[in-house]
Design a protein around this nucleic acid. Structure first.
Lengths: 205, 205
DNA sequence: TGCATTTTCACCCAAAAAGGTGATTTTAAA
DNA sequence: TTTAAAATCACCTTTTTGGGTGAAAATGCA
């Protein structure tokens, strides 16, 4: 497995080399340090990065936000802001660009490492199975789903048949049918696929 | 708009009150401070939180991970770890629980504020409806799905029955069954719900 | 301890889906 | 215009689901 390839965007050379050293120490690879927006966009165009670390303020401009937007629309890699701005205003501007983290200067090697690891992992998982949440569902329906019923619901959501569920849970298929029937009543559905659709809806509110 | 309701899980009273003060300063509401796993789970059961801040280590146990798992499966609120562990091992254990952030002690008020704001925003945005894409699907299977079959597939994904589809498309139910059969062959599935699961997978790559 | 809920299971019937075979008509491309 | 692929439809059998009724354990609280 090759090392994670990082783009560092930072206009202050001293800080940039600091970051580079930190990242190298924890086994990431810094293949480019960009000092301006132009350099950053160029690097993005010409290389494949796994992650970007963005300073928001580059030479008196909030160019970090622009870079973030370009990353979102064109490259889809995760990124974190490394900045000394902590004001409400800036943070609100920053959050709508959907960074995976916001680290305030000064920071330490470990801060960087932990946040990056979480960011990379979450980014990788984000286009992935959506998992159900009992509370979210129950908040939206009148007759509440019990925890056993919830287990069955998860299996239905995974496409399992009654027989498979009976085997998995070491109970009679009749028991499964009973749970399924109760689920349909509580969710006001009448079929497995209809139930999956319903759950998709409930989990998106 | 009422203030963000935060659950703080921290076994060290001094740190807990520090966190509470920080959060109150930046206009969050700390409605519960839990010192043990039991207290935390109880609080989650009895209150509606918008966010949780978890210490990983509670009295010599890694109970923070358990709490995180319960949050994911039962409550679906975003959470951040506040901890002094920065080892690779711990971080790797932590990331699979999908925290929205990982903040190392000691931290400051602003660190907390920035990370929480990002976490809350990203969590809120993460739920989205998904739509199918023929190209994406066909790129991943050997026998390609035709455009008519794709129409049927969309209906299956929406939970429709064969009869409903027949009515909608002005064809015999036998025709629908024929299309469905072909879809199962091409997608290597054997049921409607299994097909929905398969499509979910194919659309997430 | 007693009561309510949950979980377990059985049996029955009807409806829907799954699986197979075969065949005709349309459509689109060579 | 021939030909292959796609779309249409029929019929049949078996399996799985859905829907209804009822009831005995097990569990969890009060």
């Amino acid at each position: 497995m090759s090392r994670i390839n990082v783009l560092v965007v930072e206009d202050e050379p001293l800080i940039a080399t600091d970051i580079e050293e930190y990242l190298t120490n924890v086994d990431y690879k810094v293949s480019t340090i960009a000092k301006t927006k132009t350099e950053a966009l160029n690097a993005l165009k010409n290389h494949d990065f796994d992650l970007a670390l963005l300073d928001i303020n580059l030479g008196n401009n909030m160019d970090g936000f622009d870079i973030a937007n370009t990353i979102n629309s064109h490259y889809g890699i995760p990124f974190l802001y490394l900045t000394s701005y902590s004001g409400k205003n800036i943070v609100n501007q920053a959050k709508v660009t959907r960074p995976m983290g916001y680290i305030l200067k000064p920071f330490e090697e470990d801060d960087l490492f932990c946040s990056i690891e979480i960011a990379l992992y979450n980014h990788g998982q984000n286009q992935r199975p959506q998992n159900l949440c009992l509370r979210t569902i129950n908040d939206q329906i009148f007759l509440k789903i019990t925890s056993k019923e919830f287990d069955i619901l998860e299996d239905i959501f995974e496409g399992k048949t009654n027989k498979q569920m009976a085997t998995k849970h070491y109970v009679s298929i009749n028991t499964i049918k009973s749970h399924v029937k109760n689920l349909y009543e509580k969710l006001e559905t009448h079929s497995r696929s209809g139930t999956i659709v319903r759950i998709r809806e409930l989990m998106n509110n």
